[in-house]
Design a protein around this nucleic acid. Structure first.
Lengths: 296, 296
DNA sequence: GAGTTATTGCAACACATGTTTCATTATGAT
DNA sequence: ATCATAATGAAACATGTGTTGCAATAACTC
């Protein structure tokens, strides 16, 4: 059944309602989405009721007016969260989380919603398309500047791990764009860029495109500069309750793409991972114990 | 991304639009659900545009008015399935989603669940505690190697943005641990490390602890090496349907911590952000146009 | 630089909105 | 049957809505 914020409240008060109020309440229970979408008068029309009845029901349920009910239902449609979000909200309210923890909770719930958006079929198709292009490429170049750097780096790291020839265009020592000079039509450039778009990223992407490199964009809108010139784009949300645009969705998309490319590799990936492990073991890179060491 | 009935029509007409029309079009593409839920004037307010612009865009796209567009988007929301996660599963079953998209969908749903775990009160308390310690610190050192690098880098980036004295211990040029030699009890080291734990990260963390530096760990278990020696630890999940342990939860935690530190800053943060903007503007780092550039 | 066209902001307009009030009707208790 | 209370429909009201037209500004062409 659909999300219905007032279901319990209405069921609890239903018996004590008059006929008209019950009819209005029934309409709300049966059409939660229309409560969000239609005006109160249009709802009353569709329910065959007087507009005043809707307002009266709202007051009967303890609200100031019907606009409060519509607002609640709009939030439900807008939130469109999986069940865990509702649970976290209730918990937050009951425990009276304050300040820091409230904001952090809001941010994390936003990340959850964003992950859900990315899990929708058209986004999944884009992620799969991107991974297919990367798997087919001779070389992969990963580009992300400023807030996008972490995303590009992460994808580069995963691809390197699985033996894919990946190059990070990160500008260290002023050499950022040099490697792209070797790229051609058999290669892929994965460029990450969100508002505010960095000029250098766009220019490098244009240059690569001019060389016939396949451009895969991870960006925040279909009309963003990168998306318009890309061969394909993975569109990610960046909205956040905080001042900072969130890079978590882009990071999640990049990790998903990297994992899919790994899955394409078959025996080659397995052997690359094995070589990696042996190399790191020889260099003593990782602790062999998973847990506590004695304090030195 | 969400259902967007006019995506193709907008993309096709985008280049021929004026600046204001493009901004309105972008708002529609980026907020399809709000198109259904909010009045045209409220949308214009949120987009920072004139109401007449919304009507003009509608006419530009061949409609009689903006109400036609809203009606289209309401229909899209009305047709939307109730439970997106359930819908993806059903669709997968009915349409026999191919391997890539199924795995990507599973990963993204895992990220959503992990976000929910991090949104629970004990995790939120740790995130808040970490942010409080960082805010109180004279200097902050961010450390994350290999797969943890992106997380450390992201936190470092946010802290730098808001004017916090942050240093990334990244080992470039073999100088990774050098800056920690200047650290003392007034400083914080944020170290990120998950299985397989890198030896260098643990050793640097130990060194810092020996110097009295407050150690904040972002790691995958309360009994991980880092957590055991840290002053406090943010425990993040890393499980993933893919071969690769996921760094998305750690990334989300780091971003949340950074945002909370920003919120502690008050006027200092605002002026730091302003200086940052001015510096970047002076250097021409970002594109001034949010949307398409003419094809070069 | 001048002229033309396109764009834009603003104000006015007709109409819709949600709420409140009043008069009428219905219901319940005695 | 009578009376008091609750419920109901309709109208009035203040405010918001989407659209249109006008004047000013910007952009483009010659």
């Amino acid at each position: 059944m659909e999300k219905n914020p007032l279901e319990e409240a209405i069921l609890a008060a239903f018996e004590g309602m008059s006929a008209q109020l019950q009819a209005a309440a029934r309409y709300i229970l049966d059409h939660p989405r229309d409560i969000a979408l239609l005006s109160m008068r249009e709802q009353a029309r569709q329910a065959g009721l007087q507009p005043a009845t809707m307002t009266r029901l709202a007051k009967h349920l303890g609200f100031d007016g019907y606009e409060d009910i519509r607002s609640l239902y709009r939030a439900a449609v807008r939130g469109h969260a999986p069940n865990f979000a509702g649970r976290v909200r209730e918990q937050a309210q009951h425990q009276k989380l304050k300040g820091d923890q409230f904001l952090a909770g809001e941010m994390l719930m936003t990340f959850g919603r964003q992950a859900a958006l990315l899990a929708e079929p058209d986004s999944l198709a884009c992620i799969a398309d991107a991974s297919t292009r990367i798997s087919a490429a001779r070389d992969v170049y990963c580009l992300g500047l400023r807030s996008s750097h972490a995303v590009a780096w992460h994808l580069h790291y995963i691809l390197s791990l699985i033996g894919k020839r990946s190059t990070l265009l990160d500008g260290i020592g002023g050499t950022g764009a040099d490697p792209i000079g070797r790229a051609g039509p058999q290669d892929v450039l994965v460029a990450v860029s969100v508002l505010p778009y960095t000029r250098a990223a766009i220019e490098i992407a244009d240059y690569a495109r001019a060389r016939g490199v396949c451009l895969v964009a991870i960006t925040d809108s279909p009309v963003a500069p990168l998306a318009q010139s890309a061969d394909m784009a993975v569109i990610i949300p960046t909205d956040s309750p905080s001042f900072f645009h969130s890079m978590v969705p882009a990071f999640a998309a990049a990790e998903s793409i990297g994992a899919l490319v790994a899955g394409h590799g078959g025996d080659g990936t397995l052997s690359a991972l094995r070589e990696f492990d042996e190399r790191l073991a020889a260099l003593g890179t990782h602790l062999t114990s998973r847990t506590v060491r004695k304090t030195p």
